[in-house]
Design a binder for these strands. Structure first.
Length: 273
DNA sequence: ATGGTCGACTCTCGA
């Protein structure tokens, strides 16, 4: 089977679903819009759109033939799904009794062509001793409950987004030095693992078992990008029936080298009929 | 390589 996405881009009946942390959608339109057109992606899940709903750049996406579903707030967080076809059952937040406005700006879900998509921006956590880290760990527990509820609908599930966890040693550039980082600490890695163990497959690792490719490079130390020292914290996780239909899963670094890039990259999964 | 760079929006916070 041909697993090179460059050769499969124009083949019909492949469904392409992608994720991208924008770090402000309005500042990244010059990257997102051409990329959507070039890659012919079916559904693009965005995080950190950093815009209130009333200011969401909806017409920019409608002008190129896409629909947009979004849940934002002022300045921080915010998630959206840009989709070619209309989606069903759009919901926001963790759908539990604790759900806060911030939670609603961190998760948006919906059904795209029979696939239950869950798009998340998991809290970063700040520092191990910060209450924000407990909020992050608890967020994974709540996400697990949401997942189990979605599983009951018997649709294939695709959970993606900036999950703010590098799950394994090969997912971060200096694992031996980062044991106390909130995106690599053992407790958050176990929280990630507990989500996986509910019945999801890490799609990038299915196709690239050992490669040191990353989805995030810190702006603050520019040489890290040049040296390929980053983090694999953006993920596409799928249920087994979707994993079996998958054709490729690739990190697209190219937009990272354009003017005014995000600090994250695109991650794309392709699925056959 | 222990600092540095972004974005939103007031001015400092979050990443």
């Amino acid at each position: 089977m041909d697993t090179d996405p460059k050769k499969t881009e124009n083949i019909e009946n492949i469904t392409k679903i992608a994720t991208f942390n924008t770090n402000s959608i309005r500042s990244r339109l010059h990257i997102i819009l051409p990329w959507l057109i070039e890659k012919n992606v079916d559904a693009l899940c965005l995080q950190e759109i950093k815009v209130e709903n009333k200011n969401f750049p909806l017409s920019e996406f409608e002008n190129i033939g896409y629909k947009a579903y979004f849940s934002g707030m002022k300045s921080y967080n915010g998630v959206a799904i840009i989709a070619k076809e209309a989606m069903e059952d759009i919901r926001v937040g963790l759908e539990d009794q604790e759900n806060s406005p911030e939670d609603s700006a961190r998760l948006i879900s919906g059904i795209y062509k029979g696939i239950q998509i869950i798009n998340c921006y998991v809290p970063q956590g700040k520092e191990i001793e910060n209450p924000s880290y407990q909020y992050k760990l608890n967020w994974f527990t709540r996400l697990g409950a949401l997942l189990n509820a979605k599983f009951k609908n018997n649709l294939p599930v695709l959970l993606c987004g900036d999950l703010n966890v590098a799950p394994e040693w090969e997912d971060v550039y200096e694992p031996e030095k980062l044991a106390d980082h909130v995106c690599f600490h053992i407790d958050v890695r176990n929280a990630f693992k507990s989500i996986i163990e509910l019945g999801l497959i890490d799609l990038f690792r299915k196709f690239h078992p050992n490669e040191k490719q990353y989805t995030f490079f810190d702006y603050r130390t520019p040489w890290l990008l040049k040296k390929n020292k980053g983090w694999r914290i953006d993920h596409i996780l799928v249920t087994p029936e979707l994993a079996e239909k998958s054709i490729f899963c690739e990190i697209d670094m190219e937009p990272r080298f354009k003017e005014k890039p995000s600090d994250h990259t695109f991650l794309v999964g392709g699925f056959g009929g």
